[in-house]
Structures are given as C-alpha cells and as structure tokens.
Amino acid sequence: MKIQTVLSNREFEVASLLVRGLLKKQVADKLKISVNTVRNHTTSIYEKLTVTSIGELCWLWRSVDNHGNTPKLFTPMMAPKRFERKRRARQYEPIFR
C-alpha cells in the first residue's frame, strides 16, 4: 500500500504537516482552510490508514520505505507503545506551616 495513492492530495498535505508536529490550527492557517476541515481530513486519514492516533500516524509515516510502500504486515497493533499517551495523577504533598 502506498500512502500517496490511498490519500487525496489535500489529505496527504495535511498528514505531512501533522507528522512534522504542527497543530491543527497551524495546519489550517498554513493551508488557508478552517480547523473543522483539518479535523475532517484527519478523521479521513485515520480511517484510510487504519490508525487511531497521531503517534501511530507518525510511526507509519516514518516506516515508509524509499518507494513509498508501507510495511507489508502493517496493523495498528504494530505501532510502538511509547506513542500511547497516559496521564498520570500527580501526587501533591500538603504544605503545613
């Protein structure tokens, strides 16, 4: 599967900017489209590439070979766990004076 053939030209532009680390608002400003349009493109990108997060998208994008082919046995479960965001509850000690 080639990423560029699966995605439309605009989706490919949005995905490449998101992978570079731009926020959705920054992508919208750069491409002169609304933030809602960027959200719609992002949802479409996730569905077409069978990813569920920006971390998985980044992993898939970086794993593409020189010919634009993705790994043959790609499944969402192949993405490294380090991209999963988990919020930890911070422990605060009470201050007594």
Rank of each mutant, 00 (worst) to 15 (best):
L60S: 05
H41L: 13
M1A: 15
L60H: 04
N36Q: 13
M1K: 08
K30L: 10
V35H: 11
W61K: 03
S16Y: 00
N40F: 09
N9T: 15
K48T: 06
R82F: 15
S16F: 01
P94C: 06
W59A: 07
G68N: 05
A15N: 00
A89L: 14
K32Y: 09
T75C: 06
R82E: 15
L17V: 10
H41G: 06
K32S: 11
E47Q: 14
R39E: 12
F83V: 12
L23H: 14
G21D: 00
S63N: 13
I95M: 09
A79N: 03
S63P: 00
V19M: 05
T75V: 13
P94W: 11
K81G: 05
G21Q: 02
L73S: 13
W61T: 02
E11D: 07
P71M: 00
P71C: 01
K24L: 07
D65G: 09
A79V: 07
R87C: 03
P76L: 06
L18A: 06
T50D: 14
K81S: 06
A28R: 01
K30F: 10
K2N: 14
T42V: 10
T5M: 07
R85P: 01
L18Q: 06
T70S: 09
T37L: 11
A28C: 01
G21S: 02
H67P: 06
G68W: 05
N69L: 10
T52W: 14
K30S: 11
D65W: 05
K72G: 12
S8G: 08
V38S: 08
N9S: 13
M78S: 11
R20T: 14
T75P: 01
V27T: 03
P94V: 07
V64F: 04
L22E: 01
N69F: 12
T70E: 06
A28T: 02
L73I: 12
V35Q: 10
K81E: 09
A79P: 00
R97Y: 08
G68P: 09
H67D: 14
L22K: 08
